[in-house]
Write a protein that binds this DNA or RNA. Structure first.
Lengths: 202, 202
DNA sequence: CTTTGCATTAACCGAATGGTTAAACTGAAT
DNA sequence: ATTCAGTTTAACCATTCGGTTAATGCAAAG
Protein backbone atom coordinates (compact mmCIF):
# COMPACT_ATOMS: atom_id res chain seq x y z
CA UNK A 1 0.00 0.00 0.00
CA UNK A 2 2.13 2.83 1.29
CA UNK A 3 5.39 1.94 -0.48
CA UNK A 4 8.90 3.21 0.39
CA UNK A 5 9.68 4.99 3.65
CA UNK A 6 11.39 3.18 6.49
CA UNK A 7 9.93 -0.12 7.53
CA UNK A 8 8.98 0.86 11.06
CA UNK A 9 6.65 3.59 9.87
CA UNK A 10 5.20 1.38 7.17
CA UNK A 11 4.30 -1.15 9.84
CA UNK A 12 2.64 1.41 12.08
CA UNK A 13 0.65 2.81 9.18
CA UNK A 14 -0.53 -0.66 8.19
CA UNK A 15 -1.26 -1.63 11.79
CA UNK A 16 -3.36 1.50 12.25
CA UNK A 17 -5.45 0.63 9.25
CA UNK A 18 -5.95 -3.03 10.12
CA UNK A 19 -6.45 -2.65 13.88
CA UNK A 20 -8.82 0.29 13.58
CA UNK A 21 -11.05 -1.48 11.09
CA UNK A 22 -10.93 -5.05 12.42
CA UNK A 23 -10.14 -4.51 16.08
CA UNK A 24 -7.53 -6.32 18.14
CA UNK A 25 -9.25 -9.70 18.09
CA UNK A 26 -10.19 -9.52 14.42
CA UNK A 27 -6.83 -8.34 13.11
CA UNK A 28 -4.26 -10.86 11.85
CA UNK A 29 -0.54 -10.22 11.92
CA UNK A 30 -0.45 -11.51 8.35
CA UNK A 31 -3.02 -8.87 7.33
CA UNK A 32 -0.81 -6.15 8.71
CA UNK A 33 2.26 -7.57 6.99
CA UNK A 34 0.41 -7.79 3.68
CA UNK A 35 -0.93 -4.28 4.06
CA UNK A 36 2.59 -3.01 4.68
CA UNK A 37 3.97 -5.17 1.87
CA UNK A 38 6.60 -6.78 4.07
CA UNK A 39 7.42 -10.09 5.69
CA UNK A 40 5.45 -11.04 8.78
CA UNK A 41 8.62 -11.62 10.80
CA UNK A 42 9.42 -7.91 10.49
CA UNK A 43 6.47 -7.10 12.71
CA UNK A 44 7.99 -9.07 15.56
CA UNK A 45 11.48 -7.88 14.76
CA UNK A 46 10.44 -4.27 15.34
CA UNK A 47 7.55 -4.59 17.78
CA UNK A 48 7.95 -7.94 19.54
CA UNK A 49 4.30 -8.96 19.76
CA UNK A 50 0.82 -8.28 18.51
CA UNK A 51 -0.14 -6.77 21.85
CA UNK A 52 2.82 -4.36 21.88
CA UNK A 53 2.04 -3.24 18.36
CA UNK A 54 -1.60 -2.85 19.23
CA UNK A 55 -0.86 -0.80 22.29
CA UNK A 56 1.17 1.67 20.25
CA UNK A 57 -1.58 2.05 17.68
CA UNK A 58 -4.29 2.31 20.28
CA UNK A 59 -2.46 4.83 22.42
CA UNK A 60 -1.89 7.02 19.39
CA UNK A 61 -5.55 6.78 18.42
CA UNK A 62 -6.76 7.67 21.89
CA UNK A 63 -4.23 10.48 22.03
CA UNK A 64 -5.53 11.91 18.81
CA UNK A 65 -9.09 11.88 20.09
CA UNK A 66 -8.20 13.44 23.43
CA UNK A 67 -5.81 16.02 22.07
CA UNK A 68 -8.25 17.30 19.51
CA UNK A 69 -10.73 17.78 22.29
CA UNK A 70 -8.26 19.51 24.59
CA UNK A 71 -6.94 21.92 21.99
CA UNK A 72 -10.29 23.41 21.21
CA UNK A 73 -11.49 23.37 24.77
CA UNK A 74 -8.61 25.55 25.87
CA UNK A 75 -9.17 28.22 23.25
CA UNK A 76 -9.80 31.65 24.65
CA UNK A 77 -13.34 32.37 23.48
CA UNK A 78 -16.77 33.10 24.95
CA UNK A 79 -18.47 29.80 25.76
CA UNK A 80 -21.04 29.86 22.94
CA UNK A 81 -18.38 30.58 20.32
CA UNK A 82 -16.20 27.95 21.88
CA UNK A 83 -18.91 25.34 21.64
CA UNK A 84 -19.34 26.21 17.96
CA UNK A 85 -15.62 25.73 17.44
CA UNK A 86 -15.53 22.48 19.37
CA UNK A 87 -18.33 20.96 17.33
CA UNK A 88 -16.96 22.12 14.00
CA UNK A 89 -13.44 21.05 14.82
CA UNK A 90 -14.35 17.73 16.31
CA UNK A 91 -16.62 16.66 13.49
CA UNK A 92 -13.94 17.67 11.01
CA UNK A 93 -11.37 15.63 12.88
CA UNK A 94 -13.59 12.57 12.86
CA UNK A 95 -14.30 13.05 9.17
CA UNK A 96 -10.59 12.51 8.61
CA UNK A 97 -10.50 9.47 10.92
CA UNK A 98 -13.98 8.02 10.83
CA UNK A 99 -12.99 4.66 12.30
CA UNK A 100 -11.36 6.01 15.43
CA UNK A 101 -14.41 6.31 17.70
CA UNK A 102 -15.79 2.82 17.27
CA UNK A 103 -12.28 1.39 17.45
CA UNK A 104 -11.37 3.15 20.67
CA UNK A 105 -14.72 2.63 22.37
CA UNK A 106 -14.80 -1.02 21.50
CA UNK A 107 -11.29 -1.86 22.64
CA UNK A 108 -11.82 0.20 25.75
CA UNK A 109 -14.80 -1.90 26.68
CA UNK A 110 -12.76 -5.08 26.47
CA UNK A 111 -9.76 -3.66 28.30
CA UNK A 112 -10.64 -0.62 30.37
CA UNK A 113 -7.09 -0.82 31.77
CA UNK A 114 -5.90 0.68 28.51
CA UNK A 115 -7.11 4.03 29.79
CA UNK A 116 -5.03 3.82 32.93
CA UNK A 117 -1.84 3.27 30.96
CA UNK A 118 -2.68 6.35 28.95
CA UNK A 119 -3.13 8.53 32.01
CA UNK A 120 0.18 7.44 33.46
CA UNK A 121 2.07 8.78 30.46
CA UNK A 122 -0.14 11.63 29.32
CA UNK A 123 -2.45 13.35 31.76
CA UNK A 124 -4.34 15.09 29.00
CA UNK A 125 -7.74 15.20 30.60
CA UNK A 126 -7.60 17.84 33.35
CA UNK A 127 -8.56 20.30 30.63
CA UNK A 128 -11.93 18.65 30.62
CA UNK A 129 -12.43 19.50 34.26
CA UNK A 130 -11.61 23.06 33.36
CA UNK A 131 -14.22 23.03 30.61
CA UNK A 132 -16.85 21.69 32.99
CA UNK A 133 -16.04 24.50 35.38
CA UNK A 134 -16.39 27.00 32.59
CA UNK A 135 -19.87 25.70 31.84
CA UNK A 136 -20.84 25.97 35.49
CA UNK A 137 -19.58 29.53 35.68
CA UNK A 138 -21.36 30.52 32.48
CA UNK A 139 -24.51 29.09 34.03
CA UNK A 140 -24.08 31.21 37.15
CA UNK A 141 -23.46 34.31 35.07
CA UNK A 142 -26.58 33.69 33.04
CA UNK A 143 -24.69 33.37 29.78
CA UNK A 144 -26.30 29.97 29.38
CA UNK A 145 -28.94 28.09 31.33
CA UNK A 146 -27.97 26.51 34.61
CA UNK A 147 -27.50 22.88 33.66
CA UNK A 148 -25.35 19.93 34.57
CA UNK A 149 -21.97 20.58 32.92
CA UNK A 150 -21.24 16.89 32.58
CA UNK A 151 -24.57 16.19 30.91
CA UNK A 152 -24.01 19.04 28.49
CA UNK A 153 -20.56 17.81 27.61
CA UNK A 154 -21.92 14.33 27.11
CA UNK A 155 -24.53 15.72 24.74
CA UNK A 156 -21.95 17.61 22.73
CA UNK A 157 -19.73 14.55 22.45
CA UNK A 158 -22.65 12.28 21.64
CA UNK A 159 -23.88 14.33 18.74
CA UNK A 160 -20.40 14.74 17.30
CA UNK A 161 -19.23 11.16 17.65
CA UNK A 162 -22.25 8.92 17.33
CA UNK A 163 -22.98 9.41 13.62
CA UNK A 164 -19.54 8.08 12.76
CA UNK A 165 -20.00 5.02 14.94
CA UNK A 166 -23.44 4.44 13.48
CA UNK A 167 -22.46 5.01 9.87
CA UNK A 168 -23.30 1.54 8.52
CA UNK A 169 -26.59 1.47 10.40
CA UNK A 170 -27.45 4.94 9.17
CA UNK A 171 -26.64 4.08 5.59
CA UNK A 172 -28.66 0.91 5.79
CA UNK A 173 -31.73 2.42 7.39
CA UNK A 174 -31.93 5.63 5.39
CA UNK A 175 -30.51 4.27 2.17
CA UNK A 176 -28.10 7.17 1.70
CA UNK A 177 -24.80 6.64 -0.12
CA UNK A 178 -21.27 7.75 0.74
CA UNK A 179 -21.66 11.18 -0.88
CA UNK A 180 -24.89 11.92 0.91
CA UNK A 181 -23.37 10.73 4.17
CA UNK A 182 -20.49 13.18 3.83
CA UNK A 183 -22.97 15.93 3.03
CA UNK A 184 -25.01 15.03 6.10
CA UNK A 185 -21.89 15.20 8.25
CA UNK A 186 -20.81 18.50 6.73
CA UNK A 187 -24.27 19.90 7.44
CA UNK A 188 -23.99 18.69 11.02
CA UNK A 189 -21.12 21.03 11.82
CA UNK A 190 -23.61 23.86 11.84
CA UNK A 191 -26.76 21.98 12.74
CA UNK A 192 -25.40 20.50 15.94
CA UNK A 193 -23.88 23.79 17.06
CA UNK A 194 -27.16 25.61 16.43
CA UNK A 195 -29.03 22.83 18.19
CA UNK A 196 -26.88 23.00 21.30
CA UNK A 197 -26.90 26.77 21.54
CA UNK A 198 -30.66 26.86 21.10
CA UNK A 199 -30.95 24.34 23.92
CA UNK A 200 -28.75 26.15 26.41
CA UNK A 201 -29.42 29.82 25.67
CA UNK A 202 -31.51 31.13 28.55
CA UNK B 1 -24.40 -19.91 34.87
CA UNK B 2 -28.03 -20.16 33.91
CA UNK B 3 -28.66 -23.75 35.00
CA UNK B 4 -31.57 -25.99 34.02
CA UNK B 5 -33.92 -25.15 31.11
CA UNK B 6 -33.56 -26.85 27.76
CA UNK B 7 -30.15 -26.86 26.21
CA UNK B 8 -31.00 -24.83 23.13
CA UNK B 9 -32.08 -21.85 25.21
CA UNK B 10 -29.10 -22.17 27.52
CA UNK B 11 -26.83 -21.96 24.50
CA UNK B 12 -28.54 -18.87 23.11
CA UNK B 13 -28.41 -17.16 26.48
CA UNK B 14 -24.72 -17.91 26.84
CA UNK B 15 -23.99 -16.93 23.24
CA UNK B 16 -25.74 -13.60 23.76
CA UNK B 17 -23.60 -12.83 26.75
CA UNK B 18 -20.29 -13.86 25.16
CA UNK B 19 -20.86 -12.44 21.68
CA UNK B 20 -22.22 -9.12 22.93
CA UNK B 21 -19.29 -8.55 25.24
CA UNK B 22 -16.43 -9.97 23.16
CA UNK B 23 -17.75 -9.60 19.63
CA UNK B 24 -17.72 -12.21 16.90
CA UNK B 25 -13.95 -12.25 16.43
CA UNK B 26 -13.16 -12.17 20.13
CA UNK B 27 -15.65 -14.83 21.24
CA UNK B 28 -14.56 -18.46 21.57
CA UNK B 29 -16.90 -21.38 21.16
CA UNK B 30 -15.38 -22.82 24.32
CA UNK B 31 -16.28 -19.63 26.20
CA UNK B 32 -19.88 -20.02 25.17
CA UNK B 33 -19.93 -23.69 26.12
CA UNK B 34 -18.41 -22.91 29.51
CA UNK B 35 -20.85 -20.08 30.11
CA UNK B 36 -23.72 -22.44 29.30
CA UNK B 37 -22.14 -25.22 31.36
CA UNK B 38 -22.31 -27.75 28.54
CA UNK B 39 -20.06 -29.60 26.13
CA UNK B 40 -18.70 -27.64 23.19
CA UNK B 41 -20.01 -30.19 20.68
CA UNK B 42 -23.54 -29.25 21.70
CA UNK B 43 -23.10 -25.86 20.13
CA UNK B 44 -22.53 -27.45 16.74
CA UNK B 45 -25.14 -30.10 17.32
CA UNK B 46 -27.82 -27.44 17.70
CA UNK B 47 -26.47 -24.56 15.63
CA UNK B 48 -24.00 -26.01 13.15
CA UNK B 49 -21.36 -23.28 13.19
CA UNK B 50 -20.10 -20.22 15.02
CA UNK B 51 -21.38 -17.99 12.25
CA UNK B 52 -24.90 -19.47 12.36
CA UNK B 53 -25.04 -19.05 16.11
CA UNK B 54 -23.73 -15.54 15.84
CA UNK B 55 -26.26 -14.59 13.22
CA UNK B 56 -29.12 -15.68 15.46
CA UNK B 57 -27.79 -13.70 18.40
CA UNK B 58 -27.03 -10.65 16.30
CA UNK B 59 -30.39 -10.63 14.55
CA UNK B 60 -32.16 -10.80 17.87
CA UNK B 61 -30.06 -7.95 19.24
CA UNK B 62 -30.69 -5.73 16.26
CA UNK B 63 -34.36 -6.62 16.40
CA UNK B 64 -34.56 -5.57 20.01
CA UNK B 65 -32.96 -2.22 19.23
CA UNK B 66 -35.18 -1.55 16.23
CA UNK B 67 -38.41 -2.73 17.80
CA UNK B 68 -38.00 -0.61 20.88
CA UNK B 69 -37.58 2.36 18.62
CA UNK B 70 -40.57 1.51 16.45
CA UNK B 71 -42.96 0.89 19.33
CA UNK B 72 -42.55 4.29 20.86
CA UNK B 73 -42.38 6.09 17.56
CA UNK B 74 -45.81 4.84 16.60
CA UNK B 75 -47.51 5.96 19.79
CA UNK B 76 -50.34 8.39 19.27
CA UNK B 77 -49.07 11.51 21.03
CA UNK B 78 -48.22 15.12 20.22
CA UNK B 79 -44.65 15.27 18.93
CA UNK B 80 -43.08 16.88 22.02
CA UNK B 81 -44.66 14.33 24.34
CA UNK B 82 -43.66 11.61 21.98
CA UNK B 83 -40.03 12.72 21.98
CA UNK B 84 -40.10 12.67 25.78
CA UNK B 85 -41.42 9.13 25.68
CA UNK B 86 -38.90 8.00 23.10
CA UNK B 87 -35.97 9.29 25.10
CA UNK B 88 -37.18 7.89 28.39
CA UNK B 89 -38.11 4.55 26.91
CA UNK B 90 -34.97 4.16 24.85
CA UNK B 91 -32.58 5.02 27.64
CA UNK B 92 -34.42 2.62 29.90
CA UNK B 93 -34.16 -0.12 27.31
CA UNK B 94 -30.43 0.41 26.96
CA UNK B 95 -30.02 0.42 30.71
CA UNK B 96 -31.29 -3.14 30.65
CA UNK B 97 -29.01 -4.10 27.74
CA UNK B 98 -26.05 -1.75 27.96
CA UNK B 99 -23.82 -3.83 25.68
CA UNK B 100 -26.18 -3.93 22.72
CA UNK B 101 -25.24 -0.66 21.01
CA UNK B 102 -21.50 -1.13 20.84
CA UNK B 103 -21.98 -4.77 19.88
CA UNK B 104 -24.38 -4.05 17.04
CA UNK B 105 -22.53 -1.02 15.72
CA UNK B 106 -19.22 -2.78 15.77
CA UNK B 107 -20.34 -5.96 14.03
CA UNK B 108 -22.27 -3.88 11.54
CA UNK B 109 -19.14 -2.04 10.57
CA UNK B 110 -17.36 -5.29 9.80
CA UNK B 111 -20.28 -6.84 7.96
CA UNK B 112 -22.75 -4.24 6.75
CA UNK B 113 -24.48 -7.08 4.88
CA UNK B 114 -25.94 -8.17 8.20
CA UNK B 115 -28.41 -5.33 7.87
CA UNK B 116 -29.64 -6.52 4.50
CA UNK B 117 -30.46 -9.96 5.86
CA UNK B 118 -32.45 -8.28 8.59
CA UNK B 119 -34.52 -6.23 6.18
CA UNK B 120 -35.37 -9.24 4.09
CA UNK B 121 -37.05 -10.95 7.01
CA UNK B 122 -38.29 -8.01 9.07
CA UNK B 123 -38.98 -4.69 7.37
CA UNK B 124 -39.21 -2.89 10.69
CA UNK B 125 -37.91 0.47 9.62
CA UNK B 126 -40.61 2.16 7.53
CA UNK B 127 -41.91 3.52 10.84
CA UNK B 128 -38.85 5.66 10.93
CA UNK B 129 -39.79 7.28 7.66
CA UNK B 130 -43.16 7.99 9.20
CA UNK B 131 -41.51 9.61 12.19
CA UNK B 132 -39.37 11.80 9.95
CA UNK B 133 -42.51 12.90 8.15
CA UNK B 134 -44.13 13.72 11.45
CA UNK B 135 -41.22 15.98 12.34
CA UNK B 136 -41.45 17.75 9.00
CA UNK B 137 -45.19 18.32 9.44
CA UNK B 138 -44.74 19.59 12.98
CA UNK B 139 -42.19 22.00 11.57
CA UNK B 140 -44.64 23.28 8.97
CA UNK B 141 -47.36 23.70 11.57
CA UNK B 142 -45.02 25.68 13.81
CA UNK B 143 -45.22 23.17 16.65
CA UNK B 144 -41.45 22.93 16.50
CA UNK B 145 -38.78 24.77 14.55
CA UNK B 146 -38.31 23.93 10.90
CA UNK B 147 -35.30 21.67 10.96
CA UNK B 148 -33.91 18.68 9.13
CA UNK B 149 -35.91 15.70 10.44
CA UNK B 150 -33.04 13.33 9.85
CA UNK B 151 -30.59 15.52 11.75
CA UNK B 152 -33.01 15.79 14.64
CA UNK B 153 -33.51 12.05 14.76
CA UNK B 154 -29.76 11.54 14.66
CA UNK B 155 -29.38 13.91 17.59
CA UNK B 156 -32.00 12.09 19.61
CA UNK B 157 -30.41 8.73 18.93
CA UNK B 158 -26.93 10.05 19.59
CA UNK B 159 -27.72 11.40 23.01
CA UNK B 160 -29.57 8.26 24.04
CA UNK B 161 -27.09 5.69 22.76
CA UNK B 162 -23.65 7.22 22.97
CA UNK B 163 -23.24 7.28 26.75
CA UNK B 164 -23.65 3.50 26.84
CA UNK B 165 -21.07 2.99 24.13
CA UNK B 166 -18.69 5.38 25.85
CA UNK B 167 -19.20 4.01 29.35
CA UNK B 168 -15.61 2.87 30.00
CA UNK B 169 -14.20 6.09 28.60
CA UNK B 170 -16.61 8.12 30.66
CA UNK B 171 -15.81 6.25 33.84
CA UNK B 172 -12.11 6.60 33.18
CA UNK B 173 -12.12 10.29 32.41
CA UNK B 174 -14.56 11.48 35.06
CA UNK B 175 -13.65 8.92 37.68
CA UNK B 176 -17.26 8.04 38.46
CA UNK B 177 -18.16 4.55 39.65
CA UNK B 178 -20.96 2.20 38.62
CA UNK B 179 -23.51 3.72 40.98
CA UNK B 180 -22.82 7.26 39.86
CA UNK B 181 -22.96 6.12 36.25
CA UNK B 182 -26.42 4.66 36.73
CA UNK B 183 -27.48 7.87 38.43
CA UNK B 184 -26.13 9.90 35.55
CA UNK B 185 -28.07 7.75 33.10
CA UNK B 186 -31.25 7.99 35.14
CA UNK B 187 -30.87 11.75 35.21
CA UNK B 188 -30.43 11.74 31.45
CA UNK B 189 -33.95 10.51 30.81
CA UNK B 190 -35.20 13.94 31.73
CA UNK B 191 -32.16 16.02 30.87
CA UNK B 192 -31.96 14.88 27.28
CA UNK B 193 -35.68 15.30 26.72
CA UNK B 194 -35.57 18.83 28.15
CA UNK B 195 -32.49 19.57 26.09
CA UNK B 196 -34.09 18.47 22.85
CA UNK B 197 -37.36 20.25 23.45
CA UNK B 198 -35.56 23.45 24.39
CA UNK B 199 -33.62 23.18 21.15
CA UNK B 200 -36.57 22.66 18.85
CA UNK B 201 -39.32 24.72 20.45
CA UNK B 202 -39.84 27.76 18.22
C1' DC C 1 37.93 -7.41 -1.12
C1' DT C 2 36.52 -8.64 3.41
C1' DT C 3 34.37 -8.06 7.49
C1' DT C 4 30.66 -6.70 10.34
C1' DG C 5 26.16 -5.58 11.93
C1' DC C 6 21.65 -4.80 10.84
C1' DA C 7 17.61 -5.98 7.81
C1' DT C 8 14.89 -9.39 5.50
C1' DT C 9 13.02 -13.74 4.26
C1' DA C 10 11.20 -18.53 4.05
C1' DA C 11 10.50 -22.22 6.60
C1' DC C 12 9.08 -23.91 10.66
C1' DC C 13 6.77 -24.60 15.53
C1' DG C 14 3.47 -25.12 19.17
C1' DA C 15 -0.78 -23.59 20.91
C1' DA C 16 -5.36 -22.33 20.13
C1' DT C 17 -9.57 -22.79 17.70
C1' DG C 18 -13.64 -24.25 14.95
C1' DG C 19 -15.43 -28.35 13.86
C1' DT C 20 -16.19 -33.69 13.64
C1' DT C 21 -16.92 -38.34 15.21
C1' DA C 22 -17.77 -42.47 17.39
C1' DA C 23 -19.08 -44.14 21.44
C1' DA C 24 -21.88 -43.72 25.70
C1' DC C 25 -26.01 -42.26 27.93
C1' DT C 26 -31.07 -41.56 28.67
C1' DG C 27 -35.68 -42.24 28.68
C1' DA C 28 -39.80 -43.44 26.43
C1' DA C 29 -42.26 -46.87 23.42
C1' DT C 30 -42.75 -51.76 22.36
C1' DA D 1 -36.13 -56.44 29.12
C1' DT D 2 -35.19 -54.54 24.57
C1' DT D 3 -35.14 -51.34 21.19
C1' DC D 4 -34.61 -46.95 19.36
C1' DA D 5 -34.31 -42.07 18.80
C1' DG D 6 -32.50 -38.12 20.46
C1' DT D 7 -28.84 -36.18 23.48
C1' DT D 8 -24.33 -35.72 25.49
C1' DT D 9 -19.43 -36.45 25.97
C1' DA D 10 -14.39 -37.06 25.31
C1' DA D 11 -11.19 -37.60 22.08
C1' DC D 12 -9.66 -36.25 17.93
C1' DC D 13 -8.66 -33.53 13.42
C1' DA D 14 -7.27 -29.83 10.28
C1' DT D 15 -6.38 -25.23 10.02
C1' DT D 16 -5.15 -20.88 11.59
C1' DC D 17 -2.37 -17.91 14.10
C1' DG D 18 1.20 -15.64 16.82
C1' DG D 19 5.75 -16.17 17.19
C1' DT D 20 10.74 -18.07 16.32
C1' DT D 21 14.82 -19.27 13.86
C1' DA D 22 18.41 -20.05 10.84
C1' DA D 23 19.98 -18.71 6.68
C1' DT D 24 20.55 -14.90 3.26
C1' DG D 25 21.03 -10.13 1.70
C1' DC D 26 23.20 -5.92 1.93
C1' DA D 27 25.50 -1.73 2.67
C1' DA D 28 28.96 0.73 5.28
C1' DA D 29 33.47 0.36 7.71
C1' DG D 30 37.97 -1.50 7.70
Amino acid sequence: MSQERNTEEQIIAAAKKIFSTKGLAGARMQDIADEAGINKAMLHYYYRSKEKLFEIVFTEALDKLMDRMSNVINANLPLPDKIREIVKNYIQGLTENPHLPLFVLNELQQQPELLVKQFKTKPNFPNIQQFLMEIAVAGEKGIIKKISPLQLMLNILSMCVFPFAAKPLLKGVTGIDEVQFKLLIEERKQFVADFILAAITP
